[in-house]
Design a protein around this nucleic acid. Structure first.
Lengths: 192, 192
DNA sequence: CTGATCATGTAATTCGTTACATGATTCC
DNA sequence: GGAATCATGTAACGAATTACATGATCAG
């Protein structure tokens, strides 16, 4: 593959209406971040590369915004950029998938500690996911708005998967906690 | 935090009975890989560091294995190593969580293509997760064995979460496909 | 004898984060 | 006037992958 995944994030968000690097980063932080993060250190250099490759171009400042001396670079998709985006979206390339979940890692290794510590661990995993669930819920109105006003269906659908996913993990944690307590019975055994 | 997460993977797997870098890598590939991957390029240098830090030490070759000229370095946990592992397992440090899911990213951006392409995308996401589910099922017997013979409960419990999680995503994909088809109704609309 | 597996390591490179540097504008 | 936000970028660093290099042993 030629372009990095982050390049497609930029192409895709430009298509969704973002114009500057700053706007892209702001939107990433309330959307793709949960399954594909990106930092300024990636976005700005990538914008330059994409411009050189002819996939995006500098856009004229929109008229509504009369030149406020504030310097900023607006970009827009070129036709080639749109083509590249759609080509990637429909290509059969293997889908990269990667998870780094410290909570699960600890849980996996937690035979080294006692049941009480295991339960405590499970609680902190659950509370992390509850925090994320809260975040996802808080951004839902925006996704609803995008759907109603800009005919963007997928952001909301993706968000709802995220919400369901968080709930799934949270429920699993509650279940597991109950099972651990039951199994340990009277004598809570430690381990070394 | 002093140690990298990968250092704790090593400490933890050493505790679970691995002895060499090679064994650690082999076990990682059928266990933690799904939520915390590690490569040789990390494992071997990390083993050296951990030895210098006194958390692991070179272990005498077990007697059952009469010196086959095959050179290899066996390690074992020191007391300090075990302490460090348990300290991390029970510490309240924020739990690092990170997901990179190209399928979701594409799905999120797929308003740029037509419903048919969206459905196709959903199918390939589902089939990826079905593949992973198959992998997880294939390693389950090993986890059952570890539980029965070595009193390691957590690997199996973690694996069963993984299996349930894959099923959750697969089901969601099937649902979403049905919903997309229903919504699109008669006139399948494309988008640009 | 040959291919699979056991076994250890390094070097180059890629990917991504974090911190830093800078400065304008807007809202209170 | 000061804090928050808008806005763009770079440099240093760290984490991790990939490819390479090497060689022994074991099963057929």
């Amino acid at each position: 593959m030629e372009l990095s995944k982050t390049a497609y994030v930029i192409l895709g968000l430009l298509r969704m209406g973002c114009r500057t690097g700053y706007e892209i980063k702001s939107l990433v932080d309330v959307s793709t971040r949960f399954f594909w993060a990106a930092s300024y250190g990636q976005i700005y250099p990538e914008l330059k590369r994409l411009e050189q490759a002819g996939l995006i171009r500098a856009a004229p400042e929109p008229a509504e915004e009369p030149d406020t001396g504030r310097r900023r670079k607006s970009y827009e998709l070129t036709e080639e950029g749109g083509d590249a985006l759609r080509a990637w979206l429909t290509s059969g390339t293997p889908l990269h998938f990667e998870l780094r979940h410290e909570g699960l890692l600890r849980f996996f290794l937690s035979d080294a500690v006692g049941v009480d510590e295991r339960v405590e661990l499970l609680r902190s995993i659950r509370s992390e996911h509850e925090r994320v669930l809260g975040e996802l819920r808080s951004i839902r109105p925006r996704a609803e708005g995008d759907r109603a006003q800009r005919r963007l269906e997928m952001p909301l659908m993706t968000l709802d998967l995220g919400i369901a996913y968080q709930r799934f993990i949270i429920d699993w944690c509650s279940d597991a906690e109950r099972r651990l307590k039951r199994t340990s019975g009277a004598g809570a055994g430690g381990a070394a």
